[in-house]
Simulated scan of single mutants.
Amino acid sequence: MKNRIFSIFYHEYERRLQRKILNSEIPHHIAVIMDGNRRYAGQMGKDSSFGHVMGGEATERVIEWCYEIGVKQLTLYAFSTENFKRSEEEVDEIFNVINENLLKLYSDPRTHEKETQVRVIGDRSKLPAFLNESIEKIEKATKNYGKFYLNVAIAYGGRQDIIQAVRDIAGCISNGKLSLDEVNESLISKHLYPAPGASVPNVDLVIRTGGDERVSNFLPWQANGSDCAAYFCAPFWPEFRKIDLLRSVRVYQARETEKKQEQSYRVSKVVNFLEMGTREEKSEEIGQPQSI
């Protein structure tokens, strides 16, 4: 009985919260650091593979929720370059789970009904052949879609992303395709993963689960450069609920409101300053004797 009452309360709160956030601006691009799979498995008395499988199920739900509320671009941190330090057995487990989820996305009718373009960002040379085959398969099948973008970061590191972009630009300069004068922020952005001209855009909101308050080398160019909002929450990734997503969007909206108020205040100060200067000039003109 107690669980039933709690469930009713939870769903009513979720409904009201969603209705509230839909009345304001929804972030265009959300990036998620999906942390806590292993700790969740340990908490449940299971091995790490169980946590990664449950994390995959959470990922499927979050993709659906983001599409539902109107997010246009979602980037998921599935496997970082630092994750290669884990045991070979666990790395293989994670790659198998990622592969299964990509193939599930490929065959899921919702992917095609919602015209979801799936793109993988990261150093593919470090990935096993079977995973690269699945990546190519789903990217090819969804390359012409454009209603919703799902970016999956695998073997990804933010600094490495910037390094490969700089090397690519240096090569273009060396062979005469670009001049040094053409190098600017926009050009660098275009050469970031996944490919020149089709890179991941600036991030509006970063979410991290699992309790840690750090961004772990995730999209530094796109996140830090855009001064995006950040939402850190305690639930492990497999426990992430729709309410957690809605709360993160509420944080983004509150931040946007503060930024607009601050901007409005600054504009008001400038206008007042200019008006004061104009009044002083008029007073001086009135006080001056007219020439005969």
Rank of each mutant, 00 (worst) to 15 (best):
K2G: 02
K2H: 05
N3K: 04
F6A: 03
F6K: 02
S7K: 11
Y10P: 08
E12T: 13
Y13A: 08
Y13S: 07
R15A: 15
R16L: 09
L17I: 12
Q18T: 15
K20C: 05
I21W: 05
L22Q: 15
N23H: 14
I26D: 12
H28I: 04
H29M: 00
H29K: 00
A31C: 09
G36L: 04
R39Y: 07
R39V: 11
G42N: 12
Q43A: 09
K46F: 10
S48P: 10
G51S: 06
G51P: 09
M54I: 02
G56S: 06
E60K: 09
C66G: 07
E68W: 00
G70Y: 06
K72E: 11
Q73K: 01
S80H: 03
S80K: 02
T81A: 11
T81Y: 00
F84H: 12
F84S: 10
R86C: 08
R86Y: 03
E88C: 06
E88R: 11
E90A: 04
E90W: 01
E93I: 15
I98C: 11
N101A: 08
K104Y: 14
Y106M: 02
Y106N: 10
R110G: 09
T116D: 01
R119C: 13
V120Q: 05
V120R: 02
K126G: 15
K126H: 12
P128M: 09
A129T: 15
A129L: 14
N132Q: 08
I135H: 06
E136V: 06
K137L: 15
K137T: 13
T142S: 01
K143I: 15
Y149W: 08
Y149S: 06
Y149M: 05
N151G: 05
V152I: 15
G157E: 06
D161P: 10
I163D: 10
A165V: 13
D168S: 14
I169S: 04
A170Q: 01
N175G: 02
K177F: 06
L180T: 14
L180V: 14
D181K: 04
N184H: 09
S186L: 06
L187I: 11
I188N: 00
S189V: 03
S189E: 15
S189C: 08
H191I: 06
A195S: 15
P196H: 05
S199Q: 07
N202G: 11
N202C: 11
D204R: 00
V206H: 00
V206C: 00
I207H: 02
I207C: 03
T209I: 05
G210Y: 02
G211N: 02
L219F: 05
Q222D: 08
S226W: 08
D227C: 12
C228Y: 01
A230L: 13
A230V: 13
P235G: 07
P235M: 04
E239D: 10
R247G: 05
S248M: 06
S248N: 10
Q253T: 11
Q253A: 07
E256S: 11
T257D: 08
K259I: 13
K259H: 09
Q261W: 11
Q261S: 13
V270Q: 08
V270M: 07
N272L: 13
M276A: 14
E281Y: 03
I286G: 01
G287E: 13
G287L: 13
P289L: 05
P289M: 04
P289H: 07
Q290K: 13
